[in-house]
Design a protein around this nucleic acid. Structure first.
Lengths: 260, 260
DNA sequence: AAGAATGTTCGGGTCTCGTGAACGGGTAGT
DNA sequence: ACTACCCGTTCACGAGACCCGAACATTCTT
């Protein structure tokens, strides 16, 4: 579950990599025609065509009058990732509980390639942080909670790969300041995000560990700064997070004990 | 959105196809080692290794002590499919409304490669029909509602590709009987599923069309047979479905009018 | 109706993919 | 402790697939 073995991989197939590049480009352009892709990727038209055809044949892309979009099979595969992972299911239940307890939006996130990926969130309809989105770690409560639990060298790797871009005036962009903050987080047991990712948004997050002590992910609660303050921010949410994180870790431990 | 252009595709890249085959196998085996895959796919070990490395490098697969699983990037991509499609978002809202109206589980499904794919469902926690799953069309209310709206030749294609497997004693396995049922559905405006997919489960479904008249997907409501009966089954649910389907079609029409 | 732009098909040269065999690491069993 | 086995990883080479450019088909515009 941890982000293991990410460096130095054996042989790589260039054709498959190219197909993935095309897929990625279609995603980022929110649908594209062949000509769009030829311009964007600077690959011969016939080549792009072949990749698109192949991906379409398998449902990874869908074609709608000469525009290609991500295909529904990707949705199926994506749901499978989450649905067949008991630990994620348990985390989902915890998120729902947590959101109800504090009456604010809650979510569960994991690290993927040095960024935070939202696996579950309590979908108060129309909230901005839908599951499936990536976030930087240095500017979120969940991210800082996780970084504080990782060895220094892993933190360095994350920074090296994604930097510490500034999203608001509050964003921590200096690595020394970040390390200092992480030490505080470590002592406190949970992390704050005070309008560091977006203005007028606050959050609190705490790490969730695997039974073997490695990092599984993080639970966090967030919302508009005018609501997330005072007793709620400093007492109610941290307590709820602590309890629910401990509960989730227990559930995972029990599951692994009985099923492995 | 409709299942267009599925037949006869230009050139196909064998390397990419092989990678997709490996991905698919990992999914179906719910995680696999290299040796598992060698045995299953009958491809040289070094070849499997190269494909796995490539897929892992891009996050499509994840490795956990020599076992490969579907990677989190697939989850990200899958969410993107649904999240960036306004029509799906609108359908999601409709599903929530619908579930609340009738106080039973509701869902929205589309056709993908001749099968039904669940895009949204009203997640009463722990229900069995999570989104992302495939179902046969001949044995579900939503599937029959859609088939009834398609030209005969498309229905034939679906049957040709996936057959009419028998899930319960009630499943319609004879094509002639299916065609007769579809005509009834057409006249009635909605379809029933009386324990045809699983014992003691009933459902009602209706088609949702695009503004141009093509099929977009289907709304359906289902639950245990002891609850889904009498007035609820024959009046309340059909009425709610009709209203909500019409409402959804209007929203889509309005969206396309203002945004295209 | 003619032209422009875009999607699709086709053949050949080059580079990569697939393979079997050898290597290395870890585990179980004696 | 040692060995034998199993599994994952690397390597070199020949066969064959991929990438490209150009020609063809199709759709939309002027």
């Amino acid at each position: 579950m941890a982000d293991e073995g990410t460096r130095e991989i054996g042989r790589v197939l260039e054709t498959t990599e190219r197909s993935i590049t095309v897929l990625q480009a279609v995603k980022e352009m929110d649908g594209a025609t062949i000509s769009d892709l030829v311009q964007e990727l600077e690959i011969a038209k016939s080549t792009v065509h072949a990749h698109l055809s192949t991906l379409q044949k398998h449902g990874l892309l869908a074609k709608e009058n000469n525009r290609y979009h991500l295909g529904l099979r990707l949705f199926h595969l994506g749901q499978h990732v989450r649905g067949d992972n008991v630990k994620f299911e348990l985390a989902g239940e915890t998120v729902e509980d947590l959101a109800e307890m504090v009456n604010e939006n809650a979510d569960f996130t994991v690290v993927e390639n040095g960024r935070l990926l939202t696996i579950h969130n309590s979908t108060n309809p129309n909230d901005p942080f839908k599951s499936g989105g990536y976030f930087h770690m240095h500017s979120t409560a969940a991210g800082k909670a996780i970084l504080a639990a990782l060895p220094r060298e892993d933190v360095e790797l994350v920074i090296e790969r994604h930097g510490t871009p500034e999203f608001t005036e509050q964003t921590i962009t200096e690595t020394e300041e970040l390390y200092a903050t992480l030490e505080e987080v470590q002592k406190r047991g949970y992390a704050y995000n005070d309008q560091e990712a977006a203005d007028s948004l606050r959050g609190v997050g705490t790490v969730v560990n695997n039974p073997d002590g490695s990092v599984f992910g993080a639970l966090s609660v967030g919302g508009p700064a005018y609501r997330i303050q005072g007793d709620l921010l400093h007492e109610k949410i941290p307590t709820a997070l602590r309890d629910k994180a401990a509960e989730l870790e227990e559930k995972i431990e029990e599951y692994e004990r009985t099923n492995i």
